[in-house]
Design a protein around this nucleic acid. Structure first.
Lengths: 129, 129
DNA sequence: GCTTGACCTTCCCATTATGGGAAGCCCCAT
DNA sequence: ATGGGGCTTCCCATAATGGGAAGGTCAAGC
């Protein structure tokens, strides 16, 4: 199966599949003409990568998860550790963003939002600590 | 005031001040020796930039906010528009991240997290749609 | 007056994940 | 054999930040 077919089969772009290969996540067989040749098992790996990325695991985490996935004897605790660390990172970022959104919404609520020039939003950006 | 002093005075790194200059946000006077020379008024601009960045406004937004800030006759509606669009973007990202965190936490809850190899997290990454 | 150290300049590179696009090769169907 | 579509690699760009090199400048101390 060449890369285009593999891409359609796993939901990733050919571009990204090559990128993941460059990152060492999945290195397919090569045909004599130089074309990449993906097996069915490779498709499963590519889908795994797509799912992990959909949950925003950084590639470095995906690499480790893949290693654990391939290791039939891994301890589930290792997987859980990676997942929970990632959850913590996600929640920290999400909370930071919501705090910023909240502050800004608060400012915007006190801004007339009409043709007048006075604007608490700019005032605040000017004066903040 | 040279760039080091300006950096200490506004809370940005000299590196970033140069970057914001390259982006056209603030271009200081130059001394004869080529050194950048910041006035007090420049410090206010730099602080404005820092505050806007602290609220995660992208540089492009900062550029527009700065223009409005400098324009004594701007309509507060223009500022509000930028702010609320940014709030929407922040909230969208925050919600996406929390949804991912939530899914993962759910998976992790069903993972023993011990030495056994069976792991619902990996199972899910393997099987997802 | 010269050395030293702190500061300044510009330029290049790396990060993360993704995509655009060019140049050139390959394969298959007409 | 020719054309179209797929494949290859390589370079570039994104956003914001930082690291670091190579070299110019200034001020203090001797």
């Amino acid at each position: 199966m060449n890369i285009g077919e593999a891409a359609r089969g796993c939901g990733l772009s050919a571009k990204m599949i090559r990128h993941y290969e460059a990152e060492g996540l999945i290195v397919p067989r090569r045909l004599e003409n130089g074309y990449r040749d993906y097996a069915e098992a490779d498709l499963a790996v590519l889908r795994f990568i797509r799912h992990a990325r959909a949950l925003a695991f950084p590639l470095e985490d995906v690499r480790r998860l893949l290693a654990l996935w391939r290791d039939r004897g891994r301890a589930s605790a290792d997987v859980r550790r990676i997942a929970l660390d990632h959850v913590a990172a996600l929640e920290a970022k999400a909370e930071a963003m919501q705090a910023m959104a909240h502050s800004l919404r608060h400012l915007a609520r006190h801004c007339h939002g009409d043709a007048r020039p006075d604007c608490p939003i700019l005032d605040e950006l000017e004066k903040l600590p």
